[in-house]
Amino acid sequence: MKFKTYILKTCLLIFCFYGCGKRNFFPDPDDPGLSILSSKGFNVATSYINDTPYINPKRNILFGVLNDTLSLFKVVTNGPSDTLSFSWPIELNNGSDTFYNAPYQRIALLMPIAKSFTIRDLLALNGQQFNANTNSVVLFNYNKILSGNSNIYFVRINWNLSNSDKNQIIISGLFNANIGDSIFITKGRFDFLVSTDNLNF
């Protein structure tokens, strides 16, 4: 009897942990499958790729939530400038359960930055728009890497004032891109909460 109670309690605990994940996806009524443009640090990014909606995945797993959010880092190069990489995994967001068969698995927005780039420079990108002459986009398609041009608009970049440790930045904005004449990424919008402890600049 004791053993049965122990099993029951363990199952309940696992069930509770499994169901605790909640995502802040607020659909845009004008653009089906996409989130609204927000600046709250909701860790959500959506866009159309050839008119199909994509989102960064968030999955409930045992004992927590796997939140595939922004990976932001500086790529040091041998050239006169370095590269700032914003990348996140993507999956289809059209109601189909095709996580393992989605044509694209990850997107990266790349922009050139000075070698002396710091967090202060990142905050200075607030309100700035960068066109396709300077930025590039990379789509990861299983074993292929597809690259093209992108436009990025950092609508809001500021400290998360509700965080008492003052080590979180909210980055939100718009992007679009094209890879040749065949792949068009449109109506992209992102809203990420980034911990400055994890940055390499």
Partner: peptide, 12 residues
């Protein structure tokens, strides 16, 4: 103009 613009934190 919801074709060209995106509202930031829109009310519903």
């Amino acid at each position: 103009n919801n074709e060209d613009y995106e509202m930031l934190n829109p009310d519903i």
